[in-house]
Design a protein around this nucleic acid. Structure first.
Lengths: 189, 189
DNA sequence: GGACAAATGTTATATTGTAACGTCACCTGA
DNA sequence: TCAGGTGACGTTACAATATAACATTTGTCC
């Protein structure tokens, strides 16, 4: 699975206010967006949030966070583990799972249940459940924050007298870009 | 005991609704409903569907189907495997996974991604994705068929130019019954 | 019956996730 | 200053879930 380009392009733009969202919810990241800036922004926000909550974004947690953010594709725990091992470390699974749990607990990443994988949160600091569009072809997952979906789900649950504590909404399919490519192969247009 | 139904190959194009739906979508089954009737009805419908589609509901597949239907709680593949082993057989994991795949392929059961578990479909024969309310306390999962949710999800995806092929909607929380129990413990009312 | 495909058996292994306990660094209060 | 507590991480072992690959059996069709 191709990993989004690590930042060959230098972040020439001035340091953005850390409040800017790393990626826009509901939007698939452009193939050649500045992913380095994406990561940098996400990391800054994570640090701000941890500071505000008075919890520690330790070396390992930060590294795991960066590994999860290395692309917009959900990444498996053992891939993260692989990444952690680059270098002198010889990390074990519990190390990774603890860090992932920490990051999820503080809303910095989400777990994609249908893939057993993890992805950076596009809107950290905002208490919310993730809604995801996951492309079968390119593997990219885009986070949605769709109030209509939340509302509809809320109504459906209410009708059944059910109180939701953890909603999971994961929509697997094909993103616009990949669909264009496939159509191109078929009709050559 | 011969598998009578699998040899019946009549060109009946539509399965007649041999009985009511096993359980009503959107409703948590009553604690003391007649589950035997539930299972019987589900099995009958499964047989009708397989006959209509001209696929074989073999001994093993039927057994796995019944094991999945043994309750309204999602059941793990290895629990099913345990069940299959009651008696003389010594089934192995692939046997179970193949049967589960078959049953899913023909819309007779659903997989609950957030639990790595399987549950009988409340409305088999109807092409649809499952939407589930899953109670943390009693473990029961009720299937929803909520058009509002589908619509909202459809709109959200469309706005992103995304085409959905496999939606996953799993809502974990507390069912009305379990919530009443918990409230009772707190306020004694 | 013979050929072919579908279904299942069998062995081995891959992938994902946790339990349990030990170590160490850091803080805090007497 | 240091005893004791706590949080983070190390380490070992294992549990739980799932699949690859190939062999064998069963069913169907001619």
């Amino acid at each position: 699975m191709p990993i989004a380009t690590s930042s060959v392009r230098r972040a020439v733009s001035r340091p953005k206010p850390s409040s800017a969202a790393p990626v826009k919810p509901g939007v698939f990241p452009d193939a050649k967006h500045d992913h380095g800036a994406c990561v940098k922004s996400a990391l800054q926000r994570a640090e701000d949030i941890c500071t505000a909550k008075d919890v520690r974004l330790t070396q390992i947690r930060r590294q795991v966070f960066e590994l999860v953010w290395q692309s917009h594709n959900p990444v498996g725990a053992y891939d993260v583990l692989e990444g952690l091992r680059d270098g002198q470390r010889k990390a074990q699974p519990p190390t990774v799972y603890r860090a992932l749990d920490f990051l999820m607990e503080h809303g910095l990443i989400h777990r994609i249940e249908s893939l057993n994988a993890y992805i950076g949160c596009a809107v950290p600091g905002d208490e919310h459940a993730g809604q995801f569009l996951i492309c079968r072809d390119c593997g990219v997952a885009a986070e949605l924050l769709d109030k209509r979906i939340d509302d509809a789900i809320g109504k459906g649950a209410k009708a059944a007298g059910f109180s939701i504590e953890r909603p999971t909404v994961e929509l697997e399919g094909t993103c616009a870009h990949c669909r264009r490519i496939k159509r191109g192969h078929k009709h050559r247009d």
